[in-house]
Simulated assay, not measured.
Amino acid sequence: MGKPISQSLNRCLFFTVKKLDRIMDKIAEEAFKQTGLSPTYGFIILAVNEQPGITQKELAELLHTAPSTIARFVVKLENKKLIYTEQSGRSTLSYLTDEGKILVKKIDEAWDNLHNIYADVLGKEESDDLALHISEIGDQLKLNE
């Protein structure tokens, strides 16, 4: 390595992304506290609201999460009476319950709050550009899997 470990870690994409992930998790959890849901559950609710009948496979692709993880999340949201599912052939389709629909506004507010928290620190344009750039990097690295 030849450099001090702290310098090496600060120049390592793996560790800097992990650091950012931990920080963003804390910020997102705080922003979503008012909903009673974790950010991931909130994003699932928003996705189902936007596309009623979305499949678990589509949710997994949208959220870049393993299908088995999405299946567990959907079951938990069903247990909370926020989502219900229907089978269509081999696919499981997800829909919001009335309780889930009521929660959408609060989740939208939490999402906006999350964006405002880091935009206040980084600036709106910088935070938007950074998110887009990180997404593009993820897509590029995924192609090299």
Rank of each mutant, 00 (worst) to 15 (best):
K19I: 13
K19N: 03
K19A: 10
K19T: 11
D21V: 12
R22M: 05
A28E: 03
E29N: 11
E30S: 08
F32W: 04
T35P: 07
L37M: 05
T40F: 08
Y41T: 07
L46S: 02
A47W: 04
V48E: 00
E50Q: 11
Q51N: 14
G53D: 05
G53M: 12
T55G: 06
K57Q: 11
L59F: 09
A66S: 09
S68V: 13
T69H: 02
F73D: 03
F73W: 08
V74A: 02
E78P: 01
N79K: 09
K81C: 09
I83A: 02
I83D: 00
Y84I: 09
Y84M: 07
E86L: 15
Q87W: 11
G89Q: 04
G89V: 15
T92V: 14
T92L: 05
Y95L: 13
L96A: 07
L96G: 04
T97I: 12
E99C: 09
E99G: 11
E99W: 10
G100N: 07
K101G: 14
L103P: 10
L103A: 07
I107Q: 00
E109N: 13
W111N: 09
D112K: 12
N113M: 10
L114I: 10
H115V: 14
N116P: 08
N116E: 15
I117R: 05
I117V: 15
E125H: 11
D128G: 06
A131L: 13
H133D: 10
I134D: 04
S135I: 15
E136H: 15
